[in-house]
């Protein structure tokens, strides 16, 4: 029984067809990559899954829940978290607050409870504080907990973005070009980190990536998009030898 099931997903921006007839089944625990040239519709797929856009056509089921028409925060509460192509941290807030914000949906106390500091608020806040710091510790960010997010070095900002996503306790993690802007050393660390969080948090991961090294190195399956169409699908080895892929994608860009 797949954890994520997408059927016939199609999306138009005005007259422009960004995604056409996209299908995907993700089994629990899988690590699947989506690749394709710029403008192929990869990020749009993420935006459709997470409810930022409402698909023109098609259905998305996650653990039996229909996601179409749900708000992003509702979808996140169901267990899907994501990162962004360009880092979108809460730049002026501390590292700790960035992670604590991601506890929003699981917090039960109400406004009155907060304003009058009722026991429920005090207890839950203590829990959130501790859990957030523990997560930062796990991710190697504890020492920077009080830093303002924008003051972190680039690699750690990427890492914080992943930590923030993990704080929502997802079952499925969507990573949008996590290696963008990283040097080879950082990319090696990142690949190790992705593998590690997958085991540690028992995650299913869907990954968009331009760096062939990352995709070929860690993904079990790969889907290739071009102009919104799925042009190939298979294991890294199959994709590397697929002529259509080489023509549409690998032919243009150097393999890192």
């Amino acid at each position: 029984m797949p954890i994520l099931r997408i059927r016939g997903l199609t999306h138009y921006f005005g007259g422009l067809r960004a995604v056409h007839d996209f299908h995907l089944d993700l089994e629990p625990g899988e690590l699947v990559g989506i690749i394709g040239p710029n403008g192929a519709g990869k990020t749009t797929v993420f935006n459709l899954i997470t409810g930022v856009y409402r698909p023109t056509e098609g259905e998305i089921f996650f653990n039996g829940h229909n996601l179409v028409g749900k708000r992003p925060d509702q979808i996140v509460s169901l267990g899907i978290a994501r990162t962004f192509q360009t880092i979108r941290l809460f730049k002026e807030l501390t590292v700790l607050d960035n992670v604590r914000i991601a506890h929003f949906a699981r917090t039960r106390y109400g406004v009155m409870s907060a304003m009058f500091r009722l026991p429920q608020y005090v207890r839950e806040e203590a829990e959130i504080r501790e859990r957030a710091l523990e997560l930062l510790d796990l991710m190697g960010l504890l020492e920077q907990a009080n830093w303002v997010a924008s003051s972190l070095p680039y690699g750690l900002q990427r890492r914080l973005e992943i930590a923030r996503a993990l704080a929502t306790e997802p079952r499925l993690l969507l990573l949008d070009e996590p290696a963008a802007g990283m040097n080879p050393g950082e990319i090696a660390d990142l690949m190790e980190l992705i593998q590690w969080i997958r085991r540690r948090f028992d995650l299913t991961i869907l990954l968009i990536e331009h760096q062939m090294r990352v995709v070929m190195g860690i993904c079990e399956r790969i889907k290739v998009l071009d102009f919104g169409e799925t042009i190939a699908e298979g294991t890294p080895a199959e994709i590397q030898s697929n002529p259509r892929v080489i023509e549409a994608y690998l032919g243009e860009e150097a393999i890192a």
């Binding site: 997470t50 992003p72 925060d73 996140v76 978290a81 809460f90 914000i101 929003f104 949906a105 996503a165």
Partner: peptide, 10 residues
């Protein structure tokens, strides 16, 4: 948008 994507009910 990032806020709603980390579960904040905006």
């Amino acid at each position: 948008i990032a806020s709603s994507l980390v579960s904040v009910d905006t």
